[in-house]
Design a protein around this nucleic acid. Sequence first.
DNA 1: GCGTCCAGGTCTACC
DNA 2: GGTAGACCTGGACGC
Length: 291
Amino acid sequence: MTHALYIDLPEHFNFRSTVYSHGWCELPPFALDTEKWRLSYVFGHAGKSIPAVIYEQGKRLRIDVEGDKFDKEQIIRDVRHILRLDDDLNGLYDLIAGHERLSWVADKGAGRMLRSPTVFEDLVKTICTTNCSWGLTKSMVNNLVETLGAGSLRSGKAFPTPAAMADVDSDFYRNEIRAGYRSPYFVELADAVASGKLDPEAWLTSDLPTPELKKEMKKVKGVGDYAAENLLKLVGRYDGLALDSWLRSQFYKNHNNEKPCPDKKIERHYKKFGEWRGLVIWCDMTEKWIN
DNA sequence: GCGTCCAGGTCTACC
DNA sequence: GGTAGACCTGGACGC
């Protein structure tokens, strides 16, 4: 049985721009139907998998949820979180108003970076993006969900809980997930979160200044400068650029005649955007995805 | 078929 | 604090 839930859309929100904001929509338990323009996600609540389909219907967002037993308020909260419905981007839009290359961002309601319902899931996925091709990232995340996620392959599997990930050893990550040298990192991370020693969800509401919060994030094995700054963006702090090889190559192409340059030159280019610079570079480099 | 390079980097040892 | 070398995987590429 399917139940429909509805959320009123905020001003300046664009469903497609948000879903296409980065590659997360390709990583399970997300799935995207680009013909009907529906975003699927399998929520994991209380050890159960709850498949849902999210799409626009008029001026509202409709969420079709499978099953009878689910927490309606939690589903709504999670959807608001993953689509960043409560983010206030007016500061960004004011800053780039009239800018030759960036005025499209406000016109297209862009700037909301799709994220997972939990910081833990974003943390694991971010580690899966490091030092490998996007294809391998997809493979590792797919293996994690298929082998350790709650639910069935037919109805859909949720992202594994910290406890489920802590329940397997390094060899499992190496042989089944194909995570290579990241394998012991996942064991250590899952143990820390499952035991309560580490609470990545607290990063969402942390009072720490960004440099201090970044240091906290980098204490997690496998999280370096790029990964920490990517996670900072996903918790709503945009004062780091999160430079990786893809972002650098796009900058060279768009702003440096396709020639490599030092990171400092990229940093100088976006310095004027202050606390929004991390989001500005991301929008600047992903314009073709949205337009 | 085989070797090399590199992709949405990070860790450790060493200076 | 800065840097060299090692690290899994798998696809692309040259030979």
